[in-house]
Computed example of a mutant assay.
Amino acid sequence: MLFEGPPPPAGNFPLDLLKDRLRGAFRSNGFAINPQKIHYADKHSRRTVTGLKINEFVNVDRKYVRNTRAALFVTETRGAAVAQKILKDKYGREATLASHLRGRISWVGHIKGPSDPIFRGLASRYNKLFPSEKLEILPTNLEIRERAVWVVEHWADDAAEGSAQGTAFFLKSVGLVTAWHCVEGATEIAVYHPSKTSNKFKVTVAKNDAHRDLAVLAHEIPVTEYYEFDISKRTFKVGDNTTAIGFPSFGPGDKINVRSGSITSLPTKSAVPMIEVTQKLSQGMSGGPLLDDDGAVAGVNHKGGPGEARDFAVHVNALTDWLSKS
């Protein structure tokens, strides 16, 4: 036990309640206990160390977040000059307001993680106030998914065939990826995001492999227009969850189509590793990403739909292997 008698109530307590042996251990190691800072917390009370809560996991104290929000509110409603004066006159801080808020919010992100909603909310408010000193806000998996998957549309020489649609997506260290059959025989190819159907970008085929049914498209789309997926690092097995994304029968007003399922087999067909899934990969979803549980790319949607007995994606390893040799 830490105490000479029964434990005191949670909170500050007199130093002499600690056992002599424990106090001696502090003294023998060159430490002096500050009576103003000695605190006892049982399993039902809040436990803090150096301002961090450590009950179930390390977290920022809610009071710290509330005070940061209050400082942002004053800046938003009364102006930076007033907030700067309060910071100096009331709290004796000489730092600039932007640096002070940036430090507080960065600390929240360091402890809670850059994708945490609280950090993202604070950082977004800060960035509006100080656009020249923005904090980096990492996108969530959902935001990446919404901006990384685009419609690909192409036209062939044969006017009777008209135009055809499929899906393409942005992949880190690779570029804009789709299925080869989505652009095969095309004389003109365009991609666009469903939120801006009139804002079409012309693209061309930079690399293709008909055997693997893969293509990488060359483009000049500004990096501010899209996010990129990561390549999955998982070793897949039957039963793993997957998410197929694409634009089946896309038309004005339609949004991204998301289909959940799982892996039913991992066959190799004509020396190409494939992933068979339970969800139906309808026409138009070809070329879109098949994602793992981490939101990283497991494969490229290949074929399937109501008229097919089985639904397949080309394993992402087929893509990386092809590119490493090309």
Score class of each variant (00 low, 15 high):
Q283L: 02
Q165P: 00
G284N: 01
I105Q: 08
D16I: 13
D311T: 02
Q84I: 04
K325T: 14
S124T: 15
G175P: 01
R120C: 11
F170S: 09
T140C: 07
V149C: 07
V316Q: 01
G261R: 03
A206M: 04
K112P: 00
A25E: 13
L281R: 03
G284M: 01
Y226W: 04
F73H: 12
D89S: 12
H219T: 02
L217N: 06
V49G: 07
V177Y: 08
P8D: 12
A83S: 09
S132E: 11
T235V: 10
G5V: 06
G109P: 03
Y227A: 11
S195Q: 06
F119L: 07
K85N: 12
I275E: 02
D293G: 07
F236P: 01
P35E: 15
K207R: 10
Q36D: 14
K128A: 15
F169Y: 06
T48V: 15
W155K: 06
K53M: 13
R234F: 09
R310G: 01
D213T: 09
D116C: 07
N127W: 15
S28M: 10
R66W: 09
F13D: 07
F229T: 01
E56D: 11
N34F: 15
S99F: 15
S249C: 02
W155G: 00
I144W: 01
G11T: 12
V183W: 09
T140E: 05
P139R: 09
V223Q: 10
G51Y: 14
S173R: 08
E76K: 13
T187P: 00
G11V: 13
L52S: 13
F119T: 05
P252V: 13
K303W: 04
L129P: 03
E308Q: 02
N67Q: 15
T224F: 11
K112I: 08
R21Y: 12
A80N: 08
T242N: 03
A168N: 00
G295F: 04
E308I: 01
K172P: 01
K200G: 06
K37F: 14
D42G: 11
D42P: 06
G92W: 08
R93C: 14
A164C: 02
G5E: 12
A80K: 07
H181D: 02
N141T: 11
N208V: 08
A218H: 10
N127M: 10
P35D: 10
T320W: 04
D42K: 11
R212N: 05
A70C: 09
L290H: 07
G185F: 10
T197A: 10
F26R: 04
N317E: 09
L319S: 05
R47P: 04
N141H: 11
G121K: 10
K325D: 08
